[in-house]
Write a protein that binds this DNA or RNA. Structure first.
Lengths: 137, 137, 137, 137
DNA sequence: GTGGTCTAGACCACG
DNA sequence: GTGGTCTAGACCACA
């Protein structure tokens, strides 16, 4: 559902909040969609339920989410604007720089790193399509 | 010199450490270069000198920097020892996955992300060679 | 738990770090054992909590300890990765030279020093096995 | 002449002071012996002359050394008591523990480490006797 | 209550 | 003037 990296020094709550906002902004989650329960998400991400609850609470106060008691937590109608194009490009640049710098630190030439990334992507695509065939044959 | 964003939940010291590693990995800093003094950088970034000292210390332990007592802090010749081959591949895989996951969260198709990365790399190469022409015409 | 000598010119944090490493290396602390909390140890050793925290942090980065957020600090299963073979020999040589040089400074003939070392090792082995009999009779 | 380990976090001046005291206490230096000049020793140990001067000064104030202006620095008659036997054993124990703990950290079994040490000692003896044959055939 | 981060400020070691 | 060590004390993230 979302990605949390425990080795990233960024606080867990910040990572999760950002992930939810990004998912909405990029259209992976839509207004009215139901989010996982606090406990479900906590188990899935292997973090404490309090941390998830805190994020849901803050996003609710920020008007991004809406809690219907006894029902669940949902994305609000006008939860946030779509990430502007320049914004998305800025974030993508950050990601790219982080990858290239990491590879350089490892002493891997950028050309090789890019080639490796392409391979890795194809691997994942293959795995994913295989998993789908297994789940819904 | 470096950019620190106090409103970013990422710890200051982690931001600075990454900034220095990136500067080295992308060729903006070269082996032998002298870094700003702890106090200078602290003033410039408006953070506490201890925070800067912590980063310098950690990077020294990691073999990235070298401090000459009473003189200053410098970029080391070989930024840490080369990791073993299987280790390197494991780390590169982690970097690649992080990049792809990040792009996916932004809603950017992997194919586009890979293409973007290639562009970004070429941009950096161009910038770097330009910087060198300026330094040593 | 550990011994710190404030009159020793060796930095407090270095003394504590060595003490912990020695306790692990000699079997007084085992993988999985919980260390005292930062504040407990600080009070016990009469040093500042930050100093203890610095040591725990460095040992964590070194792969010797593991901290579980909000829970405590523990001895890791495998205290750091095994160094490569040539690396290990180089380090072992350094250790041996330091020992022999130290003994020479004390005016102890090398032959005696080596004999003493052997005795000391057997002593430690006996102490260790005794401790285990006490813990799990 | 003396041993200084730059990677030891113990301050250089403390290492040197201890080395001189030990040399006297163990009879490697005798009352009346002339010490190297500040600059000579600084060059030999690759440390700053100020650091050596500071140590000589402190030992002079402590009554261990004596400076005859224009002549040199000498060991005083009753510079310090001979290291008592128990004291020497305590220090030797410390050295031994440091060696064994270091080996254990490297994952080297104590038995192997002791054997290695013996080999290393014989190597050094051979090298030394060879060097003497070359210097004074 | 656990560890983590940051600050302000003192003093030391070294060149 | 350089980095290093230590302290006291505040506030945060997490369980």
């Amino acid at each position: 559902m979302f990605t949390i990296d425990a080795s990233d020094p960024t606080p867990l709550y910040a990572q999760l909040e950002r992930a939810i906002r990004v998912a909405i902004a990029t259209g992976r989650l839509h207004p009215g969609d139901k989010l996982p329960t606090v406990r479900q998400l906590a188990v899935e991400l292997r973090i404490n339920a309090n941390t998830v609850a805190k994020v849901y609470g803050e996003l609710e106060r920020a008007g991004v989410l809406e809690t219907r008691r006894g029902v669940g937590t949902f994305i609000r109608d006008r939860g946030g604007r779509a990430a502007s194009l320049p914004d998305r490009e800025r974030q993508l640049t950050m990601l790219a720089d982080r990858f290239l710098a990491g590879a350089a630190e490892l002493g891997v030439p950028a050309a090789e790193a890019v080639a490796f990334l392409k391979t890795r992507w194809l691997d994942q695509k293959r795995e994913r399509s295989h998993a789908e065939r297994v789940e819904q044959p």
